[in-house]
Design a protein around this nucleic acid. Structure first.
Lengths: 205, 205
DNA sequence: GTCTATAGTGGGATAGAC
DNA sequence: GTCTATCCCACTATAGAC
């Protein structure tokens, strides 16, 4: 993914403007209707072009899906990479989880909504052997559980739940008119509550 | 179903045995692959019959889906009905949420997995005007928030999250070999932690 | 209650002109 | 880069025999 730092300075558009628009529209439709339930025709129509024209920009429907997913996976990869640079300590667990949850500014929440709306696809993509998305959230959770002094059998589950609290909050807010900022702060509060639960267990362990 | 005329005495099965089997198989496949991604042919094959035979038992694919969903929705309805018989108090919030979360014995978890795997469909069915599934979880959450002495803007979200903690736990456990019992007890612990969060906010409010 | 055969539809994908 | 036209296939659903 874009590991070069400059990201090509400025005017990137024109070259792939339609392609980016297609990704934006696809993300919306896949989120509101689901991937399988969204025909390419609908994406094309929203762009004002035909189905066939879409194939100039993407070789297949699945390629659109993958392009979306890889954008999101990059964020998890970045966090895992950062984790590896940090000194290992139990406190790092809380720091990492909150860093993850709070990294979602309102515009990035759309990515979480997409994942939450297509859980089976998100799972399949995470475990795809294609390479790319190796550093998924499960890997992150494993790294974090290993930080605990005496990890119990359900601690892995709790850590995963705390990481996924942003997903849970988005899912719980679906269908309501909850403010995006409220979703994020509530998810962070929930994550902290779960982490306290884990730490309390460590004391007893 | 009614070609009787005696002789049937006890053995009620056989009457809708295939139908029930179809529901069982459909629940499994819809959960592991998703509703849209599962062709009727696959369900039929798993039963050892043909696609056409399936149409003897269900008028459409959607009818299979609905039959599954209505079974699950009945549980939420029961809890809401029970809620209405209880004296109103803030303590009822915790009682109700835990009653819900812990009502999932291991065999019922499959229903939650189905919902978790098909969130868009679950949402669409919940808000379907067809009548039946009126008492969904959102309605339950609203009843519960109303029990709080001074409900804040994010309390509704937190209550929904605590109800959905069983879903969150199932989702977090997906892809791992977590024991079903551990999932339920962890979900209950998480629900309690979120409820404590809500109650702490009430003190300050 | 299950079968074979088939209708009918819609979607992903391609060919080739402009 | 976008179009029209088309292919191919898989799926839902139906018809009618046994």
């Amino acid at each position: 993914m874009g590991t070069d730092s400059g990201e090509r300075v400025i005017v990137r558009r024109g070259g792939d403007h339609t392609r980016r628009q297609a990704q934006r529209v696809a993300l919306e439709l896949f989120t509101s209707q689901g991937y399988e339930a969204t025909p390419l025709r609908q994406i094309a129509e929203a762009l004002g072009i035909t189905k066939a024209s879409l194939y100039y920009h993407f070789p297949s429907k699945e390629a659109i899906l993958r392009s979306l997913f890889e954008d999101r996976a990059a964020e998890a990869e970045d966090l895992v990479a950062w984790l590896r640079t940090q000194p290992r300590s139990p406190e790092l667990l809380e720091t990492a989880v909150l860093r993850w949850v709070e990294s979602f500014s309102a515009d990035k929440l759309q990515g979480i909504r997409f994942m939450a709306a297509n859980p089976l696809i998100a799972r399949a993509m995470s475990s795809a052997e294609g390479g790319r998305v190796g550093a998924n959230l499960t890997a992150l959770a494993d790294e974090l559980v290993a930080l605990l002094p005496s990890p119990g059998p359900t601690d892995g589950l709790l850590v995963r739940m705390s990481i996924l609290s942003i997903n849970a909050a988005v899912e719980a807010a679906a269908g309501t008119d909850t403010d995006d900022g409220d979703i994020i702060t509530t998810a962070a509060a929930a994550a902290r509550a779960l982490l306290r639960l884990i730490m309390a267990g460590q004391d007893r362990g």
